[in-house]
């Protein structure tokens, strides 16, 4: 298994022959690309759910306030 590895040492592996920059920049770019495209949708989803929750909460509060207001008005008229 380890006999087939093309590099004699770890240092050689990181050096990639003459092409240190070329090979590692491609793999680095690929890693960034994977990361961004997998995590951006997740962040957007969380953001969306948070917004919708807040909106629902706000709607509820407004509904409650108006109910209380009506009750107060009704009381006021009764007195």
């Amino acid at each position: 298994m380890f006999d087939n590895i093309q590099f004699a040492s770890v240092g050689e592996f990181f050096q990639m022959g003459k092409y240190t920059f070329h090979v590692w920049s491609v793999y680095g770019l690929f890693a960034v690309f994977l990361f961004v495209n997998l995590f951006k949708p997740r962040m957007q989803r969380r953001q969306f759910i948070r917004e919708q929750r807040q909106k629902a909460l706000r709607d509820k509060q407004i509904a409650q306030q108006s109910v209380e207001q009506e009750r107060a008005d009704a009381l006021g008229e009764g007195q």
Partner: peptide, 24 residues
């Protein structure tokens, strides 16, 4: 791709770039 693919006789280690570039 990074460890086991043999170096190309012309391209050397840049052949490892192929394994990202061609699929994408």
């Amino acid at each position: 791709a990074l460890l086991y693919v043999p170096q190309d006789y012309q391209q050397g280690d840049t052949i490892r770039i192929m394994y990202v570039h061609v699929p994408v």
